[in-house]
């Protein structure tokens, strides 16, 4: 069986946290699931969201950001737009989430 690979991208800060929850929702359905916070700096994450990200990582998913402040503040993996583009090529499903 081939596992699905899904990448969510978030460009609006009001959509990032719930979008990460959606990514976790697919990881528990046995998919490789990733989230990428782009363009926008988000607040420091609460404990519940940090736990969600840890769970996502335990299931071989991850959360990335193109914004250095998010990497520093919230422990996201750093990614450039070029690297993201290459990563998207491996995905079975690409989800530009919410609004920008």
């Amino acid at each position: 069986m081939e596992y699905k690979k899904v990448c969510f991208m978030y460009r609006h800060k009001d959509y990032a946290i719930d979008g990460i929850r959606s990514a976790l929702g697919l990881a528990v359905e046995n998919m490789y699931s990733y989230g990428v916070v782009m363009d926008t700096e988000i607040d420091e994450l609460d404990e519940l969201t940090q736990e969600s990200i840890e769970m996502l990582r335990d299931m071989e998913g991850d959360v990335y950001s193109t914004v250095p402040a998010n990497v520093e503040k919230n422990g996201f993996e750093a990614i450039t737009i070029e690297e993201l583009g290459e990563k998207l090529r491996e995905m079975t499903h690409i989800i530009p989430y919410g609004i920008k």
Binding site: M38, D39, I81, G85, E86, L88, R89
Partner: peptide
């Protein structure tokens, strides 16, 4: 940003 991603994908 979208143009760049589309180009790579």
């Amino acid at each position: 940003t979208v143009q760049k991603l589309v180009q790579i994908v």
